[in-house]
Simulated scan of single mutants.
Amino acid sequence: MKKNSLRTAAAVLSVVAAAGLAGCRSSNSDSAGDASKTPTVRIMVGGIDKVIYLPAMLTQQLGYFKDAGVNVKLLTEPSGASAENVLLAGQVEGVVGFYDHSITLQAQGKCVESVVQLAKVPGEAEVVSTKAASKLTSAADFKGRKLGVTSPGSSTDYLTQYLAKKNGVETADYTTVAAGAGSTFTAALQNGGIDAGMTTDPTIATVTSQGLGKVMIDMRTEEGTKAALGGLYPAASMYMDCGYVQKNPETVQKVVDAFVKTLGWISTHDASQIAAKMPKDYAAGNPDLYTQSIKDSSPMFTTDGVMPDGGPETVLDVLGTFSETVKAKKDDIDLSKTYTTKFAKAAS
């Protein structure tokens, strides 16, 4: 076995201006105690142009945050792991990222909870390069390969490790490469920096349309996720610090109201209608391809923002299989403290 190493495929630039964050102060109560003011909530998104997190910008575009009576400022970091760190530093009030971070953080003695569940499956796929596709046909073939993830400690990293171990391959048997997403992931796949990697749309659509790779394991649908992981894996969510939620229930409800309204809107509109509402630059000059990526991935979204039954247990099983942090605390994890359905149900 070789030692697992991390290699950066390309530098990923954060869209967030450091000065913008430095100028913001964390709010610990609704509108600093002034009910006459519209509350402001800063939400960090782990890749704002990723289709898995589409509800964040779509809610803004539809005007639903404003309608709900809350001023939401959307910021972005290239990965969920980076977004999580900004929340813990008190620089934002919420994160749109994978629910699994709330479990990992509880194992580390911290409390964050998903207040609205945007997706019931990861919305991700393991994409194999065209060059490697003939010999790399399943997770059982991961040994000796260079596998791309968004970043170390990200959800793509977690899921890659789980798929490997489930198929008899140890983490030390393959090389993990921090490949980012979008153009950096595509370049890594094209130039041989990775043999395969886990990513999301619209990157998946770009890679497959250009003939650079093909989908090997598809977790954008319930069927594909259950086949790969053994159950639903609730992923994209908006999570917040437990203390903030307790002190600011009215503000949290307003934000969740807006998200749930958007989820309902998605369920009643087709991909072309959804794409038309998004910023034009998200299509990267190819609106047809962007629309296709939304069509392929939109089945992942919940319609009501409520955590799916059995989902948290699957996530805990995945994390408890490989993560030493979670494994050591697995029997002590209280899943009921990692999410709440009261805001989404009230919105419904």
Rank of each mutant, 00 (worst) to 15 (best):
residue 224 G to A: 07
residue 347 A to D: 11
residue 200 T to C: 09
residue 328 A to L: 09
residue 136 L to M: 07
residue 2 K to V: 08
residue 250 E to W: 06
residue 327 K to H: 15
residue 295 K to V: 04
residue 53 Y to Q: 11
residue 226 K to L: 05
residue 33 G to A: 07
residue 38 T to S: 07
residue 51 V to K: 00
residue 49 D to K: 11
residue 328 A to R: 13
residue 274 I to V: 04
residue 10 A to T: 09
residue 208 T to V: 13
residue 1 M to V: 10
residue 242 C to V: 12
residue 40 T to A: 08
residue 161 Q to I: 06
residue 278 M to T: 04
residue 276 A to S: 10
residue 335 L to H: 15
residue 203 T to F: 08
residue 30 D to G: 03
residue 346 A to E: 13
residue 266 I to D: 00
residue 200 T to H: 11
residue 284 A to L: 03
residue 237 S to M: 04
residue 31 S to V: 06
residue 218 D to R: 03
residue 113 E to I: 06
residue 316 L to A: 09
residue 15 V to I: 08
residue 179 A to M: 10
residue 90 G to N: 09
residue 68 A to E: 02
residue 57 M to W: 05
residue 228 A to I: 01
residue 158 Y to H: 15
residue 70 V to T: 03
residue 110 K to A: 10
residue 318 V to Q: 05
residue 331 D to E: 09
residue 20 G to W: 05
residue 339 Y to Q: 08
residue 215 V to G: 05
residue 40 T to I: 07
residue 327 K to C: 06
residue 41 V to E: 07
residue 56 A to E: 00
residue 231 G to R: 03
residue 191 N to W: 11
residue 230 G to S: 08
residue 179 A to W: 09
residue 233 Y to G: 02
residue 256 V to Y: 05
residue 67 D to E: 15
residue 140 A to W: 10
residue 26 S to Y: 13
residue 344 A to Y: 04
residue 74 L to K: 05
residue 165 K to L: 14
residue 169 V to G: 01
residue 211 G to C: 12
residue 153 G to R: 01
residue 30 D to R: 08
residue 71 N to Q: 10
residue 281 D to H: 06
residue 218 D to E: 08
residue 316 L to V: 09
residue 72 V to D: 00
residue 166 K to R: 14
residue 147 L to F: 05
residue 295 K to H: 08
